[in-house]
């Protein structure tokens, strides 16, 4: 007998994942701005201070560099910190610590030290939070050797990726999309763990691979639905892990469909989608029936006004148009 699926929000899935982590390992703790008394800027840690106390749910001053560096130090010396950075825009204040220490010390020390640290941060646009709270910088972090970069796009991944990240001996960054927090999804009670190595086909299809992650995943699934109505069977591949990229899965899908649309909420220039496109050109050139297309954010600071923000971010119609053009050339 299989248990009925649990319906919950992405936010609740994140919260349960943190709660499980705190229950499972006394070395784990959460530190970040407003994670305690306030309950988290996006309410992810609500109620956890009451349950675990101020040593495990640690409110910090507004000092992204300091708290990230402290998380790295705590990981070096045996704890399992979960650092929360309110939005990835703020993480730039901590970039020095993330790159120069967390990503670097294991190699630079000749393997003497590992940094088993998890940093969660909110990413992306779509809630009219304007240019300093809406950017998608996960592609930048995916540039850095020594880091693992995760982008849960489903409630299941939001629920289970954290445990895998904490079990990993390397610094792992988890990018939670702000639009997804309120999204609901079904959780199969039989699934108690996920890997953080593989991309996943979320919708199989024959004629074009839409390769994406994060909040562009539901948009891509909606686009695939619209394309199906037009008679175009599109596959949707959820990257899930942005570093290291699951190239075998990407290549397998594209070699089968012979066409690729990359959907990435980062800016086009120098983006993660640019990297994937370059690798497809390197490794799948002769398997392609059409050029690789990209749907990215417009190269502007994400604006406040709803219609401008909508125009700045990848939308379902853009994905549909890009895929349609590849499959049915004019």
């Amino acid at each position: 007998m299989t248990a009925a699926p649990l319906r919950m929000t992405y936010r609740e899935a994140c919260r349960q994942a943190i709660r499980d982590a705190l229950l499972a390992d006394p070395r784990s703790f959460v530190m970040g701005e407003d994670v305690g008394k306030y309950g988290g800027c996006y309410a992810v840690t609500k109620g956890l201070l009451e349950e675990f106390g101020p040593e495990r749910i640690l409110d910090t001053p507004l000092a992204e560099l300091g708290i990230t560096g402290a998380g790295i130090g705590a990981a070096l010396a045996g704890l399992r910190p979960i650092v929360e950075i309110m939005t990835c825009n703020f993480s730039l204040l901590a970039l020095d610590q993330i790159l120069n220490n967390a990503a670097t010390i294991p190699h630079m020390s000749g393997g003497q030290f590992a940094v088993p640290l998890v940093i969660r941060m909110a990413t992306g646009g779509g809630r009219q939070l304007a240019a300093q709270h809406s950017h998608s910088l996960e592609g930048w972090y995916a540039h850095i050797p020594g880091l693992k970069v995760l982008a849960p796009g489903t409630v299941e991944d939001a629920r289970h990726m954290l445990a895998a990240a904490l079990a990993d001996p390397n610094p792992v960054l988890i990018f939670e999309h702000i639009v997804l927090y309120n999204a609901e999804g079904d959780l199969d009670p039989a699934v108690t763990a996920v890997d953080i190595e593989h991309a996943r086909i979320r919708r199989p299809g024959r004629d074009v691979s839409i390769i994406t992650y994060g909040n562009s995943l539901p948009k891509s699934l909606a686009a695939a639905e619209a394309l199906a109505a037009e008679g175009i069977p599109a596959e949707v591949l959820d990257l899930r892990v942005l570093r290291p990229l699951d190239m075998p899965a990407i290549l397998e899908s594209v070699r089968r469909t012979r066409r690729a649309v990359l959907v990435d909420e980062g800016w086009r220039s120098g983006s993660l989608s640019a990297e994937i496109a370059a690798r497809l050109a390197d490794e799948a050139f002769f398997d392609l029936d059409a050029p690789v297309r990209r749907v990215c954010s417009a190269e502007v600071p994400v604006p406040y006004a709803a219609h401008l923000e909508e125009a700045a971010l990848p939308q379902v119609a853009d994905i549909v148009a890009a895929a349609r053009e590849l499959v049915k050339p004019r």
Binding site: G66, G69, I72, G73, A74, A77, L79, Q97
Partner: peptide, 14 residues
């Protein structure tokens, strides 16, 4: 200055 936040974290763990 890069080692100072690490010192804070190591002291937290210790």
């Amino acid at each position: 200055g890069g080692g100072l936040p690490l010192a804070v974290g190591i002291a937290m763990a210790d």
